[in-house]
Design a protein around this nucleic acid. Sequence first.
DNA 1: ATGCCTGAAGGGTTCAGA
Length: 299
Amino acid sequence: MASLTAPLLLAPMRIATWNVNSVKQRVPRLLPWLDERRPDVVCLQETKLADDAFLDLLGNDLESRGYQVAVHGEPRWNGVAILSRVGLDGVAAGLPGAPGFPEPEARAMAATCGGIRVVSVYVPNGREPDSEHYRYKLDWLAALERYVRAAPDATVVCGDMNIAPTDADVFDPAAYIGQTHVTEPERAALASLQATGLHDVVRDRWPDRRVFTYWDYRAGMFHQDLGMRIDLVLASAAVASRVEAAWVDRHARKGTAPSDHAPLIVDLDEAPDGDVGPVVPPPSAAGAQKRSFKLPQSR
DNA sequence: ATGCCTGAAGGGTTCAGA
């Protein structure tokens, strides 16, 4: 009876991740976005809601769309969730051995969806280099790396890493010198995490593009495309080999009451080693990706 | 402008975010 499960494990699958900056405020954007993009698995960050409040707010709307829901939140800050309509098994809230500040915070959860171990993470901000919060961030990242090392072959870490991997991932590297998100220890921690065998699938797909996932709300930063790429989908080889499209859904950052982050969308092919060529993203995303390059602007 | 906007909790403001 293995035939009942084997095809399911190889089914095409759309995984998305989105720092929504309060799921309560984002309901008018989240639900239409789910209907438009139809992701099979969604990792959310910064839900900013306790678990019961999340389920009271969205449980029915998500169930009616076919999603099972796993939440790990707090009343006020942080909070992650995983939505899935391809199974939601082995749900684990939190990150074993992760430090707190001082208490453990709701910054990670994992579940197995469609045969893939999916991890939704909201890495601590770090605030100021060398601060207690910065050290907390680095310690937390070390716990994440330990977790990934013990994870199954098919694993994907999705979320807000709060680190720009390289200078190409910030609109003006000079403006960020000495700031969190770009310091060498943070980047080294991220590189070490990736060195466990995780592929940055959006950058892999757009190696030379200006690709951001976060734009400050202030001063027209999004309109000028002055942002950072700090949200990542990091896929193990078994998952990365199936990627047929990986892009930033800039459309979701536009319009009324957006999050300050855009979602990432990754489509997995059904064939692990198929020879299907790259798939062009939907028109709205293709247009966004074709924006002309701009010189970095000083603030 | 060393938080320009947004959100949360709580209370007439402060903290947090990247």
